[in-house]
Design a protein around this nucleic acid. Sequence first.
RNA 1: GGGCGCGUGGCUCAGCGGUAGAGCAUCCGCUUCACACGCGGGGGGUCGAUGGUUCGAUUCCAUCCGCGCCCACCA
Length: 856
Amino acid sequence: MSDLNDAHPIALPEKPALEGLESKWDSRWEAEGTYRFDRTRARHEIYSIDTPPPTVSGSLHVGHVFSYTHTDVIARFQRMRGKVVFYPMGWDDNGLPTERRVQNYYGVRCDPSLPYVPEFAPPDKPERPISISRPNFIELCNRLTVEDEKVFEQLWRHLGLSVDWSMTYATIDRGAQRASQTAFLRLLQRGQAYQLEAPTLWDVDFRSAVAQAELEDRDREGAYHRLRFARGPSSPGFVEIETTRPELIPACVALVAHPDDERYQPLFGTEVITPLFGVPVPVKAHALADPEKGSGIAMICTFGDLTDVTWWRELSLPVRAVIQPNGAFRPVAWGDRGWETTDAPRAQAAYDQLAGLSPEKARSRIVQLLRESGDLIGDPRPITHPVKFFEKGDRPLEIITSRQWFIKTTEFREAMLERGRELKWHPDYMRHRLENWVNGLSGDWCVSRQRFFGVPFPVWYPVGADGVVDYSRPLLPDEAALPIDPSTDVPTGYTASQRDVPNGFSGDPDIMDTWATSSLTPQITGRWLDDPDLFGRVFPMDLRPQAHDIIRTWLFSTVLRAHLEHDSLPWSNAAISGWVLDPDRKKMSKSKGNVVTPMALLEKHGSDGVRYWAASGRPGADTAFEENQMKVGRRLAMKLLNAARFALGATEPRGAIVEPLDRGMLTSLSALVEDATRHLDAYDYTRALEQTERFFWSFCDFYLELVKSRRYGDFGPEGAASANSAMLVALSTLLRLFAPYLPFVTEEVWSWWRPGSVHRSPWPVPGEVVAAIAGGDRQSAVVMEHAERALGDVRRIKALQKKPVKAVIARAVLPMALQPLMPAARDFQAAAHIRELAFEDIEEIRLDFAEESDAA
RNA sequence: GGGCGCGUGGCUCAGCGGUAGAGCAUCCGCUUCACACGCGGGGGGUCGAUGGUUCGAUUCCAUCCGCGCCCACCA
């Protein structure tokens, strides 16, 4: 491997320092192409990484630095093991956050119905937002994100990510759009994507459908309202139900109770009358109704929650929708030409007070009406209950019937579970998150969004002579034409003038869910369609690094897409990183105002120091933000500089490694190499670092101190030669073991005496470390162990007696148990400043101090 | 309600069947020829609780308590 007997010039700095190493080495690495990917290599020589693209419209925070460092450690390790590492960087600029930022920054709004304007330039300061076409809007998004991406790249470089910066991608770029649209068309051809008009979870502020994966529950104040429904004419009296959403009474289509509930069995098959609106609705039986909840009988509305949707579907009930896409109650006409009721004027009068209101306002209004009519029994009972929200939204989700695109998921449940078992998880227990999610899937994946900045669906529809759009016969482009934007491009056989007119065509107005694109990152980075040769060399990839909170979204959807498109896993390993927790054990996030600027941290502690802290967070473990750990990392880096300066201060003479301490040190170093390699292979970078670090400190505190005197030539040239030769092997090995964690300081030291980059040198193997001592020397390892223990004992006694470290001991008597150190007695006596050494059958060490302290 | 993870010295964390470890903090000492961005040393814990298995448990099993996260059809 590295031949340390080469004559090489050694250039030691007078006073080594960490300052400035980041920019020095970043530019050197860039100039020398240190991390350049070599695409001529075969698949088995390549280690490919499906890098998560950070959202560029936000800012990088400590959590990014943390998890990206983990990936970089793995990447550097694999590179040194001889793999060509495919390590691109992506930017997630697709989606809502960018859309909002561009709207504010340029003062524009997107209107997909407008035609593209070439050479469009946004006005300097528009008085009001101007409307522009979707392609123009996307151009502006691209323009702005380019600026954001520069800032990101600068930070990543400063942190020392060994990314090949000639390979970057963006989730809205042409390649991403082409991959997304092509994959979508193929899903469609295979019958794995479909379009459906159905009740869908809907955010009333974004005015878009959202997917199950984007939901979160939030606890909200609410109240149970006990209401009475009049029984039909045949059996006078009332039925009482409880609801948290009384405003949906006009949307009520039935009552439901459990089939075994004897209280309500007599009512099944009969009709009751809704309060205020006088609508006769049937009483139904369904097993989902819980006799324990409320009064045991519930009202079914279209639609108050997902259970309503189930009941509505399974009981074949009609639709009475009252909430519009913007969340307001829509106008409804009761009576002869409108909705069914027994009392049209009364129903209309009641409803008129709700029309146009938000659900929240409608609720308080209807409670008043119910009180007045006497249909509210008692006072509402306040409760706190979980309510579904879009994770980025501010108001509770509604369920709106609309036409949406879906990708089939539920019929692949078993396949997904099997893929989850096939995937190697780090840590393994994260697999449960995926299983949990897959088992809880309640419907197919809704992938269409009624937004603008995203990948459009590559679909048009014919418009009939009557002007009605025929969704059942979509017009599809050729794959070769992709990507297209149906809001400006024209389907084959039509002209632009036929857009949205009878006998013409109409473009699908929607864009894809951001995860519908992100789920193809392996295909996008591997240039699936544009460069099949490259794709074959990197896919399926080796590693997906990501955080645990997006297992249900990013990880799940990527596995699904690869399964459907390639019948394989997208990667063989998933390394799940935890979060960075602030001192209050909460996730660090911008909204909590506790985020520290990453660049400031890197400058304060040095990138190596910060990386050291990051690497102390085990895979999957949430980790405390600890500046102390960064200081420790920085200290370690300093120690490396100084230890190296010592080792390289005098490298001659050199020769056979014959001294027991030198042989013992190398023997345990080779064991360390074996352990560290095993742990890194298993993605346990933390343990590998811990062990390397422990060895290194002991190496400095004991080994270097013990051999110092001999190394300076006090016992002749052979002894010095043995020490020098051993130290060079140790330094070379330790630098390489630390290189994935502390890329800057290790490269700096490497440059003092070795050619090339430490990051391109081969990872050490146990055999090379002990090559010069015939494969290891256990006996000498025992000698070293006893010498270290004895030196520790002497130090303790000196410290307790408050003697200087250099205090000379005229005679030392050691317990017989330490006698195995004898082969290294010379080194030991020199390090401990002992003139005469003896062993007796005693428990405690005995020291007779000499008068002078500097006679050594 | 289900699942997962975690509870070890003041703090951050290792250990995981054989009478407790590290770093930081704290205290004491040292201008030692690689390093004062340093070196050496001391003190400090009945390993969340209770049972069980075992010759022996912080380590295995069960139950419970606390913290966190994920998931759930939440009228």
